[in-house]
């Protein structure tokens, strides 16, 4: 079987990966400039709670209509986790990183317990095993179905539209939060908007790189682009190109070397950052 034949199995996965590259690439410079990498990490880990919840509700499969329901449940859970982080950070005088730590660990633990319970129930009822937990943690590109790809396309279009609509308030908020209120903007609403967009993007990225490595797609393209350009608009364009190129290269390498796709994509993106860092001088 040739490399092209092997890549054929990946077609729904490749479509999803390119859509994820688009959203990750557009959000990534904001995540880096506003120092939200840990927030992204927290929300992606919290998504595991959503995977567990979907499994317990009977939508553990990544095939057919189950995959659509699963994606929607995980999206809702991730957005809920993001809003909970925002609420804890604002209302209880706690630091955002503490709030993320609390929500992240609670969601991960809950997700693991629920996934085990759902797996046990599925075995006992003869419904067949759930997808491996390794796939959830590190990505399951091969398991993405055409229905999953369509759902991803819909969520991508929605996130891209919202990102375009709110681009100016989001950029002002990321540059200088203090300037938002005098400019007539509701600071908390903008922060929540970005959190919701980030949660949506994380859910998409989780399909490609898993809950553990999804942050790579939200951080590394922007970090790499910002080393190569010092202008804002080109940074967004470059970040999207880098995300697409590194994800495509990661998929090809994973087939060629028989490495796990999610991990290979994350390593490819890290390698691109290292190359950019060396080319532009480490201290910059």
């Amino acid at each position: 079987m040739t490399l092209l034949d092997q890549l054929g199995f990946f077609i729904p996965g490749i479509i999803v990966a390119m859509l994820v590259a688009l959203i990750g690439g557009l959000l990534s410079p904001l995540v880096v400039l506003k120092r939200l990498a840990f927030v992204g990490q927290g929300v992606s880990h919290a998504a595991f709670g959503g995977v567990g919840l979907a499994a317990v509700l009977g939508f553990g499969s990544t095939r057919g209509i189950d995959s659509v329901a699963r994606t929607l449940i995980v999206t809702a859970f991730s957005i809920g986790s993001g809003l909970l982080v925002s609420h804890l950070a604002q209302r209880t005088q706690r630091r955002t990183d503490t709030a993320i730590g609390i929500v992240m660990t609670a969601s991960m633990a809950l997700g693991f317990v629920l996934y085990r319970l759902a797996g046990k129930h599925a075995r006992e009822s003869g419904a067949g095993p759930l997808p491996s937990i390794e796939g959830v943690l590190f990505g399951e590109l091969l398991a993405i179905s055409p229905a999953g790809a369509w759902t991803t396309a819909g969520v991508t279009a929605l996130i891209a539209a919202l990102l375009f609509w709110f681009r100016r308030p989001l950029v002002l908020w990321a540059f200088d939060e203090q300037a938002c209120a005098p400019a007539g903007l509701n600071t908390a609403r903008i922060a929540t908007t970005l959190l919701v967009l980030l949660a949506g993007a994380v859910v998409l990225a989780v399909q490609v790189a898993g809950v553990v490595l999804a942050t790579a797609i939200l951080v590394l393209p922007g970090a790499t682009a910002l080393r190569l350009t010092r202008s804002l608009v080109p940074a967004f364009a470059l970040s999207t190109l880098i995300a697409a190129a590194t994800i495509a290269a990661g998929i090809v390498l994973s087939v060629w070397l028989d490495w796990p796709p999610g991990a290979t994509i994350a390593l490819t993106q890290c390698a691109a950052w290292v190359v950019a860092a060396v080319a532009t001088g480490w201290k910059r």
């Binding site: 002002l172 200088d176 400019a183 903007l185 940074a235």
Partner: peptide
């Protein structure tokens, strides 16, 4: 936009890849 405000502490992210003109124009561009 009837009130201009200079805050006590400047909290802008100075790593932002924008020019002085872009920074000044940002609230107007809204």
């Amino acid at each position: 936009g009837l009130i201009g405000y200079l805050p006590q502490r400047l909290t802008a992210e100075l790593d932002f890849p924008i020019s002085v003109r872009q920074a000044v124009a940002m609230p107007l561009a809204l």
